[in-house]
Nucleic acid binder design. Sequence first.
DNA 1: CTCGTCTACGAAAACCTTTTCGTAGAATAA
DNA 2: TTATTCTACGAAAAGGTTTTCGTAGACGAG
Lengths: 337, 337
Amino acid sequence: MSNTNLKKLAEELGLSISSVSKALRDSYEISAETKKRVLAMAEKMNYQPNPFASSLRRKKSVTIAVVIPEIANNFFALALDGIQMVAQQKGYHLLTYLTHEDYKNEEATIRHLQGGRVDGVLISLCRDTESIHHLVSLHETGIPMVFFDRVPEQMDCPTVTTDDYESGFKATEHLINAGCKKIACLSLSNYLSITHKRMKGYEDALKKHDIKLDPKLVIQCNNDNENNLNLIKNMLSAKKDRPDGIFATVEKLAISTYYVCNDIKLKIPQQIKIISFSNLRTASLLSPSLSTITQPAFEIGKESASLLFRMIEKKTFGNRIDKIVLKSSLIERNSSK
Amino acid sequence: MSNTNLKKLAEELGLSISSVSKALRDSYEISAETKKRVLAMAEKMNYQPNPFASSLRRKKSVTIAVVIPEIANNFFALALDGIQMVAQQKGYHLLTYLTHEDYKNEEATIRHLQGGRVDGVLISLCRDTESIHHLVSLHETGIPMVFFDRVPEQMDCPTVTTDDYESGFKATEHLINAGCKKIACLSLSNYLSITHKRMKGYEDALKKHDIKLDPKLVIQCNNDNENNLNLIKNMLSAKKDRPDGIFATVEKLAISTYYVCNDIKLKIPQQIKIISFSNLRTASLLSPSLSTITQPAFEIGKESASLLFRMIEKKTFGNRIDKIVLKSSLIERNSSK
DNA sequence: CTCGTCTACGAAAACCTTTTCGTAGAATAA
DNA sequence: TTATTCTACGAAAAGGTTTTCGTAGACGAG
């Protein structure tokens, strides 16, 4: 253990604990001379302040938490990267929690966070989060919270999202313009605002082009990959009413679709065109290259963290509730040609 | 703030602080009756113990740290997933630090960790970590540490790695068997043990098959993507001595190679065959599908964390230093056919 | 000389929990 | 009866840092 603490330092220096503390925090109350001595001794004895004592006294943890559904996911990995960058720059520590798309985990994590372990929380909800009582409860402790991408609809809180409705609309219209008549939509969740908005864009695009929405073509997937493969396979194997276009609201469902198409020898884009939300770096290297709606995941992370720090730093300032919306970009590739 | 603390709870209950504390920790000193009352009141007042006071007193943070080069990287994302799973199961919190392959960051992070913020540390070194004084210094504090994948060579410490030498050997031999005569090797670092071992495997495989190693075909890449693209492009554009096989020691270099080949219209696998270390889920969907050495990244994370917790939990037990080695698997696909 | 103002530092409280030690009363044993 | 052992709880210390408040001495102004 680095067992040097203020007391030992003080003894060694012949000063009081408080003076040493002040010297280390560069207080005006301490002479330059003394500061130098203290600093030198701290260095020599390899002094490391005890973070718990400090946090306890200052009521500040210099730590934020991020709660996300999963990390083996390009979007969240990039977002976390952005978050971490800002946190590091601010000298904050980052506590990471994964819910694995399980509401129970989310609830338990949020409850833990009420103990004051962190100064702020960044959250992206899990796919089956329906009730928000745990979020309200955390909010009531007064801790700064920012939601990103998957945000709660029934709660008035700071958020960072993308233009999901427009993206859903454009993606669908893109498929229509490419000649698709029967466009399926693969959704991950009933509850998430992002799927609601993306699907509303899908519906409105169909409406605009006088295409009747076929409920059988709207597939509710879940977190079980096998199940999703089956659902997609069933739909694509149908003799009649097989879709000629697919709009995947999340990356993993597009990948599953590729696997199914390989499996049942369905040619992309000749027989079926695909576009998907995705942050896959290899989208352009796929066979065929995948048309994507790409969210600025890294920026989302950066913006979320920055917003959170604004809230942490000047609590006085804000009754305002920021809602930041960034733009995704549609990148046409061969899967929808 | 959840401003209820032991003191308020005690006042409300007409008990002493210590009794309440003991009741909450289910001490035998407190009667069942009283425990029930305390629990009920704690629930009612939404009591959340202060983690800093607790950590300060118990000298235990219930937190571990993981230090990795980057997170927007399939291998590390999967490893983190495994780590997080174990940590969550143990009721531990997980502090995440990214070095972004920058030694300065690694050094600073490790130094921070000496303050006793965490009960254990998991580390995967960054590509330009040459000196290990910071690691030694952390080690000397007595804190349990486990290295995974990218481990220090000059230090005797617990590690979790894969069979890198064998994998490098097999990958190279695989290319040779596929007909390659001039095999290039793309390396990320001069310092990392994993590249040393993978390249030793590469060299020995060449030797075994009486192929002379051409130093020009061993490319030292760095963390600058542009630079790497140029290096690869230069090599692959050469009129003479152009390699007919590429062994990429890390995924991102294989992806860069794909881009270059697309760019200069080099046909994979007809003109050049490729195999790479990779955890890309879409390896089989690439054009052409990518032959990979796939490390059990999730298991590496799980094993590392499990080992770390063994060290945290029974410090008494161990002078032994575990070196766990897991097996990677070679998956042949079309890029090396 | 007195008063006020700096400067540089120290004492002690505060933060909240956990743990050690002590004790009063009750029950049991001798 | 007296001595011993439980039972159930409280007082207080310990953990390390930060902050508030106080103070001793130096200095200049009046």
